[in-house]
């Protein structure tokens, strides 16, 4: 059953089309990712689904309720963690948690089991003002406050932006645990590597959906064979590859360049090796690799 359904939603701010005819569905119990850079329209979409903003066109439902007509019911049944830290900086950790529980007319004790695994990390600092917490701890407290009324759907808008690799990993481990408790989660992120941790994802750019599928499905549909290329002089390799022939696409990707050929065959690969040797490159390594989500995103952006 679709817990979130979005049908032809559009939103325009003066001269910027933030969302352009966006449609997708999130099923019960799914961990669903909205993957896109800043300005893709992720936050606008979250604000529409959490009933904080009206769309110009289209329909959207959460838990079967309409985001316009049934906004009160929706607000009682969802948890929302906005991109910007929105707790009370001048209340302590403990006070913030109690405040949000009280808003929903329940006690912290009643739903403590749901947040226990997360809260335990910040409990030693429960008397500290929220404004004095580190980035990683603020994020954990915000998640606890979004969960304390036991929502059936959780909206997390860029929870890991600006957060280091270790905290990002921990955060995703927490999300996987929450998913096991049956909570449907819609999460947005600009980090492409996090996409593989979702059940399904939407790739979004400039208000338009580029693709919707499982991460594996998106990778499987990458149309070309992809190769990783490196040599002893990576700096020069990027420049020399701009002049190489028969190359469809080529860009830097960590340790390797990722490339695909116009006409891909053994002869083409030999020709490239010869060309690079002529340019003075040593220790040339060219190997076929699996594309990742970021490769697919770049390919879809280029269309």
């Amino acid at each position: 059953m679709a817990i979130i359904s979005v049908e032809n939603i559009s939103k325009k701010y003066t001269d910027i089309q933030a969302l352009d005819n966006v449609s997708f569905q999130v099923n019960e119990g799914e961990l669903y990712g909205m993957i896109g850079a800043d300005g893709a329209g992720k936050t606008s979409l979250f604000r529409i689904l959490t009933t904080l903003m009206l769309a110009d066109k289209g329909k959207a439902k959460v838990n079967g309720w309409d985001v316009v007509k049934d906004y009160k019911k929706i607000r009682n049944s969802i948890g929302y963690m906005p991109g910007r830290f929105s707790l009370y900086q001048d209340l302590t950790v403990e006070e913030n948690l109690h405040f949000f529980a009280t808003l929903f007319n329940i006690s912290v004790k009643k739903n403590y089991d749901l947040i226990q695994d997360i809260y335990i990390h910040i409990e030693p600092f429960k008397t500290r003002l929220a404004g004095k917490l580190s980035g990683g701890m603020k994020q954990k407290l915000a998640l606890c406050c979004a969960l304390i009324h036991r929502p059936s759907v959780l909206f997390l808008d860029e929870p890991t932006t600006g957060v280091d690799v270790v905290s990002r990993k921990e955060f995703w481990e927490m999300l996987c645990k929450l998913k096991k408790q049956g909570i449907t989660i819609l999460v947005s992120t600009p980090y492409m590597d996090e996409a593989t941790l979702c059940d399904r994802i939407t790739l979004i750019q400039s208000g338009k959906i580029l693709s919707i599928d499982t991460p594996q499905g998106i990778i499987k549909h990458y149309p070309d064979s992809m190769y990783g290329l490196k040599s002893s002089n990576m700096n020069m390799l990027i420049y020399d590859m701009q002049k190489a022939e028969n190359i469809k696409s080529c860009f830097a990707f960590g340790e390797y360049l990722h490339l695909s050929f116009q006409n891909d065959n053994e002869a083409a690969r030999d020709e490239l090796r010869n060309y690079l040797t002529e340019q003075g490159h040593q220790n040339i390594e060219l190997k076929q690799i699996m594309p990742n989500i970021e490769d697919c995103f770049i390919k879809l952006m280029e269309k």
Partner: peptide, 20 residues
């Protein structure tokens, strides 16, 4: 200081070209 946070993957690579 984190010059490419939130930037799309193509622009991120163009940015690194400027760095080089």
């Amino acid at each position: 200081d984190e010059p490419t946070g939130g930037v799309d993957p193509i622009t991120r690579r163009q940015f690194w070209k400027l760095i080089y």
